[in-house]
Each structure stands twice: as structure tokens, then as C-alpha cells.
Amino acid sequence: MSASDSDSDADFNPDREFPIAPPAPRKGRGAVTNLQGRYEVDQRETVDDGWASNPDEDGEPRALRTQVFEEKAKSILTRNASPDIPFNVSLNPYRGCEHGCIYCFARPTHSYLGLSPGLDFESRIYAKINAPELLEREMSKKSYVPEPIALGVNTDAWQPVERDLRLTRRIIQVLHDRGQPFAAITKSSLIERDLDLLAPMAARGQVMAAITITTLDADIARTLEPRAATPARRLRTIRTLSEAGVPVGVSIAPVIPFVTEPDMERVLEACAEAGATNASYIVLRLPWEVAPLFKDWLTAHFPDRADRVMSRVRDMRGGKDYDSSFASRMKGEGLWADLLRQRFYNAARRLGLNRRDRGILDMSHFQHVEQKPAPRAAPDKPASPQLDLF
């Protein structure tokens, strides 16, 4: 699935605005509801009848346990045809993401599984357990043409379940052994675990990384990205990668008006001080089910500014919650989008960010080793000459 598959419509439910009484947020989760996916035939609505469902002693909803399902994928490399995305090939070891970022554009992909883009997306994770083997097989084909791979674009390749499953680690080992360049983006400090593979690749010009930081406010981050590393920890990861020789940048994604937007300059300053050399930003995107999920989150956590936030979002989206056109979906349009753009570029210029070209990842070290078929077992007795015909 390409990175744009979940962006094909502006408003999933244009009649839905803010809920009158949103459910209480669950500790450690981003979504406050388990909104049904758009492909469900039977629509269900949760009604509070006054009987709390399995509450904890303090009255909070009971913690939702993460479930991990093993999946054998048929293919592992996704080709992208979106003209506003700077890569052609991506690889995602997981479907769903435990980080629980409420704004995640990949949430609607869980609808294809018959699951909710809400709480299901962050608590029901599918691990492509054969991903390293599929990657090895793909790169062994005579027809394979090496080009940089984007790792962890739809869902974070270093999300919490990776600590035990180590799928991303095994994938990087394959990329390392083959000399296959890649670019990674993450919110997790777990990427530091793999520096023994990343540092030698960086020395050969085969890897670059980006750390996503939306805000430096830990309280906002705790509700916005509940199971991702704290902003301070992500800054330390930038410093660690930079000191290890891995080119690292910061992605301020998304910029949410009146929530994370006031922090833009401070984020850039902190990241530049930590060693980031490049920076980028993306304004809030609300494709399909992300729009109602985000509105529920706003009402639960920022009821005082929910109307202002959505009004400003629509100012940048031609009056709609979302506009999926390639020309404007990443940066928005209109006066407020122009002001954001000026703020970002002025700050980046002042801090010396984006002065050096990120460069082209070096493809010259790629080893195209064709997999040989397994040898046939010797027969227990001499075969009939007639079998030689087959």
C-alpha cells in the first residue's frame, strides 16, 4: 500500500463535529474511541447508560492490553507514485502502531483489516514475521534495481513491540550485509540499539535518519503521542545519532494550530543544538477516520480551544477538514499556511539548518547476490533413466 492510499478523500464524515460528551481518555492511549472503519456494513454507536464498563478503582477505564498478531506477508516493498513524497520505495515491518499518535495518517489502513482506526490501530499490531526473508528474496532477483528504501513510514519500525520481536533489527542486518541504502524516520530512542549497524553504513553514505518531534511540552506529548519517547529523550537520540556519524534531521510533523504550532521555533532550536542538520515540517492532515478521531481527542484534552483549532485547520484546507490534493496536502494553502512557511524557513536559516544538501545515498556498494536454489537431495536408489526426461 502506498503512503497516499489513506488520503483519497477530504472528509470521511462531514456531518460529524465535536461529541457532546466524549469518553474518558484511556491511560497510555491516544484515541479516546474505537470508531468503526469506513468499510463496516453495520454501524454501532456506544451509549453511556451509567454503568461503567470494567473500571479501575479510581474510576478510569481499565487499561487496554496490546495484542500482537503474527502475519506472513506476500510482499514487503511498497512502490510509491505520489509526486509529493521524496521516496519511491518503502518498507513497513508492522501494521498498526503502539505509539498511539492521534494524528497518524496511517490509522485508516486498519479499516482494510475490518478493525477500528481508533483504539484497535494502537492496540492490535500485526507483525510481518517473514519481512527479513522477503526482503532478502526481493533483492536477490535478477530484475531488482536498487534504490533507497524508506523504513518505517506508515508505522514506526522501532515501536515498543520491536524490543522483543526485533524484526527491524533483522531487516537492517539484511540491508547492511547487502549494502542497500535506506532512510529511517522514528519517534523512538530504540533506534540507538542498532547503531552498530547504522554507524558503518553511515560511514559509507548508505543511511540517514530523521527524528519526529512535534512539541517540547511533555504534557502535550503524553496525550498526543502517548507511547512514544518523551521530547527530551528524542533530543538525546538526535545527539547520539549525530555523534555516531549518522546524518540526522528533525521532522516537525504535524504542526497543529494552537497546540504544537507555538513550539515550532523552540523545537528547531533544540534540535539544531542537539546536532540535527536538516529539518522539515508537515501541517496536520485529517484523512478519512482521522478527522473524527482527532476531534474526539481535541474535545477530551483541549475543549477550550477545539473550535479555534479546527477553524484554523479549515483556513488552510479551503474550508474543509482536509484536502488530499498533492499540491497542498503537506503544507496547506492560504494566509496562515504562508505564515507558517515563513516562520519555518526563517528559523531554519537563522539556525543553519538545511544549508548542506542531504546528499544522495551511495548505491555503489550494493551486492546483487542471486539466491541459488536449494540442492536436490540424493535419491536412496538409482533413478530410472526414464525420469531424466522430466
Rank of each mutant, 00 (worst) to 15 (best):
F87I: 06
P146Q: 11
L35G: 04
D120W: 02
S75C: 01
P86A: 11
A183I: 10
E147W: 00
Q67V: 15
S90L: 02
A218C: 00
A270S: 12
V250Y: 11
L339I: 08
L197F: 09
R329F: 03
K141F: 01
R79P: 01
Q43V: 15
H99C: 02
L241P: 08
A378D: 13
R222N: 14
A327N: 07
D164W: 03
E136K: 09
I191L: 15
L91M: 10
R163G: 00
N130D: 08
V161C: 12
F326D: 10
R193E: 15
A348W: 02
V145K: 15
M264T: 11
A127Q: 03
V309M: 08
Y144A: 04
R239M: 05
Q159M: 09
F69I: 14
D323I: 01
Q159G: 07
A229L: 10
A157C: 15
F258P: 00
M310E: 10
V369D: 08
L361N: 08
R285A: 07
P132H: 06
A203C: 01
G249V: 07
E136V: 00
K74P: 01
A244E: 08
I171H: 04
V246R: 05
G205T: 10
L241C: 06
R308E: 13
P25F: 04
R204N: 14
P160V: 09
Y94K: 13
E147S: 13
T237C: 06
D196M: 03
S242M: 02
F105L: 11
S328Q: 07
E70D: 14
R193G: 00
L115Y: 07
P373G: 02
F182H: 08
S6R: 07
Q386V: 11
E273W: 01
Q173P: 04
E269A: 14
R343F: 01
N54C: 03
V267D: 07
A270Q: 07
Q180E: 12
G152K: 03
Q173T: 09
A300M: 07
P146K: 13
V68C: 11
V68Q: 10
I238Q: 08
D194K: 11
V47E: 14
D49N: 13
Y126S: 05
H110L: 15
K27S: 13
M310Q: 04
A210I: 00
T299G: 02
P226W: 13
G96T: 09
G28V: 05
F12R: 14
T155K: 03
R38S: 08
F121C: 13
F258G: 00
V47L: 13
T109H: 05
D338H: 05
S123V: 01
P86R: 06
P14K: 13
G319C: 05
E273H: 12
S251L: 12
V283N: 10
Q367G: 00
T66D: 12
S53R: 13
L77F: 02
Q342P: 00
F69M: 09
H368T: 04
I213S: 03
P226A: 09
W336D: 12
E261S: 12
A52P: 01
R38D: 09
D9H: 01
D120I: 06
E147P: 00
L113P: 02
S4F: 04
P55L: 05
